[in-house]
């Protein structure tokens, strides 16, 4: 035994040598050093470029514009925020927030069954089909998709044609005749804007919900059924509460993306403006940077309040 141990290789191997060897040893002895080196560049990027510009934006919103000269007055004032409350601007905010809420709700309702199928039943090839199906639309240009939808929703578009073939044109016309949601055709109605928003942001809802559902052990569903809960009761009492963090994560995407988007409502919908369009107009053509900044703070504030409410409602308890 001793002879074999003595004649074999030594128990401690020599160092690898060189800079690589020295670095590996140093990182092994001091894992925090590696963490520090890995995190510093992205944290600097986030801190300076991202948070810095956000802070600059916040500063801008407390400045105001001199109405005669169009020059920005760099003095602290709440005047710009006061302007937000003017009926025309308040209208924009309410319209955008309502749209974002409806889009989020619809996306959640459509995404849930798809995500549930993917998390519970899809295996192997079907899982690949699911991921491809959800992601594929994200690979093509956003503008191409929106213009494609403009054609689909147009008066001469495929949707009208389909309704006509099914002899259901009266339904479509009836809907378009409604105030607020209707218009001359789907492509110039708020309904059209809504449909395209839901389509474009849907993957951002499906993926987090699917990830959340995947983490729910299937034996919890069985335990619930075992304790007498019907599928509906199991959904309400077990599945939905456990998937809620995923739904909230998805809704952060759909809600904030809708709040900030300025292209979809410009191409599809009425001439009524959304927050994104207002920001675009004020900081571009009008040169009213403070008002644009104030408009931008609105979605940030709304998301903050939304997350706070979600947390209070216990949406993150299952995390």
């Amino acid at each position: 035994m001793t002879a074999a141990a003595a004649s074999g290789p030594s128990a401690i191997l020599p160092g690898r040598g060189g800079i690589g060897g020295a670095l590996s040893d140093a990182f092994w002895r001091n894992p925090k050093l590696l963490l520090f080196l890995m995190l510093t560049p992205p944290l600097l990027w986030l801190g300076v470029i991202y948070l810095g510009s956000l802070f600059a934006l916040l500063m801008q919103s407390f400045f105001s514009i001199d109405e005669f000269s169009g020059v920005i007055v760099r003095e602290f004032t709440l005047k710009t925020y006061g302007e937000l409350l003017r009926p025309s601007n308040l209208d924009i905010i309410i319209r955008t927030v309502t749209m974002a809420a409806l889009v989020t709700l619809a996306a959640a309702v459509i995404a849930f069954p798809i995500a549930y199928f993917a998390a519970r039943y899809a295996k192997g090839r079907w899982k690949a089909v699911f991921y491809l199906g959800v992601m594929l639309p994200l690979w093509s240009s956003y503008l191409v998709k929106i213009y494609a939808w403009k054609l689909i929703l147009a008066k001469e578009g495929i949707l009208n044609w389909l309704f006509a073939k099914l002899h259901l044109t009266f339904l479509l016309d009836g809907w378009l005749a409604l105030p607020v949601v209707g218009g001359n055709s789907l492509s110039v109605s708020p309904t059209g804007t809504f449909l395209v928003f839901v389509y474009v942001w849907l993957p951002f809802m499906i993926l987090p919900v699917q990830a959340a559902l995947e983490r729910v052990p299937s034996n919890l569903m069985e335990a619930s059924a075992d304790l007498g809960a019907s599928p509906g009761q199991t959904f309400r009492n077990v599945l939905l509460p456990l998937a809620l963090p995923g739904v909230i994560a998805g809704s952060i995407f759909t809600f904030s993306l809708t709040l900030g988007d300025y292209i979809i409502p410009q191409i599809i919908g009425t001439s009524h403006r959304f927050i994104g369009m207002a920001v675009y107009a004020h900081q571009g053509t009008a040169g009213n940077i403070p008002l644009a900044a104030a408009f931008t703070v609105v979605p940030v504030a709304i998301m903050g309040v939304y997350l706070w409410l979600a947390k209070r409602a216990g949406a993150f308890d299952a995390l």
Binding site: N219, L220, E222, A223, S224, V238, P241, L242, D317
Partner: peptide
């Protein structure tokens, strides 16, 4: 049923 890994509702 008492499940093998208990299946208690975590929330």
């Amino acid at each position: 049923t008492v499940f093998q890994d208990y299946a208690l509702f975590p929330h």
